[in-house]
Every structure is written in C-alpha cells, then in structure tokens.
C-alpha cells in the first residue's frame, strides 16, 4: 500500500482516480443557466409591461420614510379612541371565531360527501370536489364584498364572508384527512355487525376528529390575520379603523393599530398552538 497516499497527494492524482467528479456536466449546467436567464427575462418583461415608474422609487421611499418617522411614537390619541380600537379588535376576533367554526360546521357534511371512503358514488364525489374548488377560488375579500351587499355593512358580513371561504378550504382539508384515515377500525366495526353508518361513526370519526380540531384551530389563527383586513371593504373589525386612519394620514394612530394587531396575533398564535398540542397529545395518548 505504498501507492495509496500518492494518489491523494496531488490534484492530478485525485482527478485520475475520480474522473466523474471533475468532468463538467454541460447539459445540466446549461439547463440551470437557461432557467435563470428565462426567469430574469420574464422579470424584466414584467417590469416593462407593468410600466413600473422607477423615477417614483426614490421620492416615494423618502415619503415612506417620512410616514414612518411621523408614526413614532405609536399613540391612539385619547382614551375614547383606545376603547374604540379595542372594541374593533374584539369584533375582529369574533369574526374570526364565528367564521372559522361556522365554516367548519358547514364543511363537515360536505367533506364526508367528498371523501371517497365514505361516499362511494363517483359523481357525488366529483361534484362535491369541484364545488369546493370553485368556492375556494374566490378570495375572502371578494366574499366580503358580496355579503356586504346582502346583509349590509358591519361585522356580520365579515363573519359570513369568512364562513364561505373557510367552507372551501375546510372541505378540502377535511376530506383529505378522512381519506387518509386507517380503514381497519371501520372493518372491525363492520365485522361485528355494524352497518356503514356505524362504521363511519365509530370507526372513522374517532380517528379524524382530533386532526380536524387541530386544523380548525390552525385556521382560527390564520383567520385572525385575514379578519384584520376585511374591514377595508366595510365588513367590520379593526380593518375599517385602520384603512380610515391611513386615508386621513393619522400615522401615530396607524402605528398603534398595527402594534395592536401584532400583539393580538402573537397572543392568539400562542394560545392556539398550546391548545393544538393539548388536543394532538391527548389523541396520541389514547392510541
């Protein structure tokens, strides 16, 4: 073994031993360079097509800096204003809670219809899926606009809007959770003489309910963020106050409201992640 060390002593030796590692793979390199160039070209084309005014960038940024400077320190103005903002934040939380749970309640039967292992009928399954896809394709803000023209301005329209958009997302998530459930408990129930409904009730649901509950809580968390903005189109909550204060350039109040949103979202995140761990932990313990 006097040859071994020599082979690794020089670069030429290593190259002789591992030619494959030193050959340039022009094909894959060309592909990578081509992809990057195509992306850059589309980027430039986008800037041109959108007519981005680069001359606005510097004065705009200066103005933005000015806004941020006047935001400090965040200040709600007066006690009455603070109370109004807190009430609006409460409205936002209400919209988020009722919208999420309402959406979940509506989506649950739909998800059973859209799950292949509950309803074997292919047409029902297909129609339920496409229906959920369509509902999901419409943004929460658009639903809010529609509901505002049905029940008028205010948080109730926001609740109904969140319900609609969550109905689509939950329907998809729930049906996927139901389809991935273990089928052995259902077979067990059927083998002891239960019918199909018993199989779903006692074999399927106990498996999926903790999963669904944790998904609902997760959505409650993310809906708190969406519920802060639907006020922009008049559907209640803190968003109405926020967009109004931005329009009248009350930057200190804007900063206060944004801070309020950040703190509330952080609190809800913390609360719901603790609850979720409690639910999933319990489910794991009962297995």
């Amino acid at each position: 073994m006097s040859e071994g060390p020599n082979l690794f002593a020089s670069r030429a030796g290593i190259e002789a031993r591992f030619p494959g590692q030193f050959r340039t793979d022009w094909q894959s390199r060309g592909l990578a360079i081509g992809a990057v160039l195509a992306m850059a070209a589309l980027f430039v084309a986008g800037l041109v097509q959108l007519e981005i005014p680069f001359s606005r960038l510097i004065p705009g940024t200066a103005q933005l800096g000015d806004f941020i400077w006047t935001m400090l320190p965040p200040d709600p103005g007066s006690w009455e204003k603070t109370l109004i903002y807190l009430k609006a934040m409460g409205e936002t939380l209400s919209i988020s809670l009722l919208g999420t749970f309402g959406g979940a309640l509506l989506a649950f039967p739909m998800a059973l219809l859209a799950a292949r292992n509950v309803v074997a009928n292919r047409i029902v399954h297909f129609l339920a899926r496409r229906w959920l896809d369509t509902v999901r394709g419409v943004d929460t803000l658009i639903w809010a606009l529609i509901w505002v023209s049905v029940v008028g301005l205010g948080p109730f329209a926001g609740i109904l809007a969140l319900m609609c958009s969550d109905f689509g997302s939950f329907g998809k998530l729930f049906s996927e959770a139901i389809e991935t459930a273990d089928k052995r408990p259902v077979e067990g129930v059927l083998s002891t003489g239960g019918d199909h409904v018993h199989g779903v009730r006692f074999g399927l649901l106990p498996q999926v309910v903790p999963v669904l509950a944790s998904q609902v809580l997760y959505y409650f968390e993310s809906n708190t963020r969406s519920a802060t903005i639907i006020g922009i189109v008049g559907a209640g909550g803190i968003g109405a106050q926020l967009s109004e204060q931005i329009r009248v350039l009350e930057w200190q109040k804007v900063a206060f409201i944004i801070l309020l949103i950040l703190v509330t979202v952080a609190l809800i995140d913390w609360l719901s992640s603790r609850l979720r761990f409690a639910i999933i932990g319990k489910a794991a313990a009962s297995h």
Binding site: F67, S226, L242, I246
Partner: peptide, 17 residues
C-alpha cells in the same frame, strides 16, 4: 409576514402613487 400585504399596499399607494 404578520402585517397583511393589503395594509402595506394601502400605505405604499399613498407613498408611491
């Protein structure tokens, strides 16, 4: 990521037109 994008958009519309 916590401040919704549409809030940024509202502020930027005032700054950049």
């Amino acid at each position: 990521r916590t401040v919704p994008e549409i809030v940024f958009a509202l502020i930027f519309v005032l700054a950049y037109g």
